[in-house]
Amino acid sequence: MFHWLKHYVRIQIAVAILSSLFLLIAPLPSKSDHIVANPVYARTKARQLLLQTAPKSPSIKHNILLHAPILGQLPQLENGCEVTSLAMLLQYEHISVSSTTLAKQIARDPTPLVINQNGHIASWGDPNDGFVGSITGRKPGFGVFHHPIALLLARYEPHQALDLTGTNWDTLLQVVKSGRPVIAWTTIYLAPVTNFVTWNSPSGPIHTTLFEHAVLLVGYNDTQVFINNPLTDSFQSVPMAAFRESWIQMGRQAVTIAPQGEPLTK
């Protein structure tokens, strides 16, 4: 009996030691583990991964290049790429306004986010009417499309705000060549994506990608476009073909400033 008891005690001690070692080496739950499963957080995770490998101010040969200010959206405006691109455009035109000020002024669609039982977005706002979700990233956020950005630009440039959405690619390049940067909608990868989603809004169905992004187009050469990227807070060169396809995929959205006296049409 005594021999059996000693054997039992040895087993219990071994189990206790192994349990202690497991607690030491097991990773602690991260903050994200406690967030309710939500497809919008894939957007945040993708941005974080991109920031780890983002190129910085490449040395390139260029044909056309406009020297617009470079502004970053982080950390204050996790989803504020559109208003940050607008701030760069306005500052290029010598209008001193910050992205945080524009974030307070942009129209909003307050429709709440609803996730269905399958983990998909069932309903949310319409980015054609106003900013959808949280612009700071404190809560789930998406972004805003061209029309509200053009309207906000018109508050600062009442007779020169020009919405180029729907135009062709060559027109965008001609605008840049004429000396005007262009806010262009793309994806955070600056290339086409395949993961699109559809949700219901008060204005109708919205079909888009959660990796929507906006940058300031400032130049180009035969094979590349040059952008001020608010996500990476840097000037970048991007293969033109991929960027062009992502711009088409996002609905050919573009906003700029028209020269004095030019009709405000595409």
Rank of each mutant, 00 (worst) to 15 (best):
P39W: 00
P263V: 06
A107I: 05
S134I: 02
T209F: 09
R244P: 00
T223E: 14
N118Q: 15
V176T: 11
Y92W: 13
Q12S: 11
C81F: 08
I60M: 14
Q160N: 13
P140V: 11
V40G: 01
P140S: 07
H67A: 06
P110G: 09
G261A: 14
P112M: 08
N228M: 04
V132W: 09
S32V: 07
Q52K: 12
M250P: 06
S203Y: 06
A16T: 15
L71D: 00
L231S: 13
N118S: 12
H62G: 02
P205F: 04
I183D: 13
I149C: 10
I106N: 04
L164S: 07
A254R: 00
G179S: 04
I95T: 12
N128G: 11
H62N: 04
C81A: 10
G141Y: 15
N195P: 01
S59V: 15
A184S: 14
Q91L: 06
H3A: 14
F22C: 09
V193L: 11
L90D: 03
L264A: 04
Q105T: 00
H213K: 09
N38W: 11
N63F: 06
F22L: 14
A161T: 12
Q236A: 07
N195L: 06
P55G: 06
Q224G: 00
G137M: 11
H146C: 03
S123H: 13
K139D: 09
W4A: 12
K56V: 15
F226D: 00
K104V: 01
G179V: 02
G219T: 12
L71H: 03
A37I: 08
P263T: 09
Q48P: 00
R244H: 10
A26Q: 12
Q52M: 08
D233G: 01
L264Y: 06
G72K: 12
W169E: 04
W169H: 11
V83Q: 05
P158D: 05
L173D: 06
A241G: 01
S123A: 14
A26S: 15
D109V: 04
D170E: 15
P263G: 06
G261W: 13
T171C: 09
L162G: 02
G219F: 09
R138I: 01
K266A: 13
P110F: 01
H146E: 14
K266F: 06
V132A: 06
T53M: 04
H67C: 01
F243K: 10
P192M: 04
T209M: 09
V182A: 02
D129W: 07
W124K: 03
K177C: 00
E212G: 10
Q52N: 08
I11A: 14
T223L: 10
T44G: 00
P29S: 12
R138H: 12
W169D: 03
L65C: 04
W185H: 09
A241S: 12
K104N: 11
S59R: 12
L23D: 02
A154S: 15
T186I: 07
D163A: 08
H207S: 13
N168Y: 09
F131N: 11
A46P: 00
L90T: 08
H120R: 12
D126M: 02
R108G: 02
T198I: 08
Q236P: 05
D222F: 04
Q52H: 05
N229D: 15
P192R: 05
N128K: 14
Y220P: 01
L113F: 15
A68G: 02
S20C: 13
W4G: 03
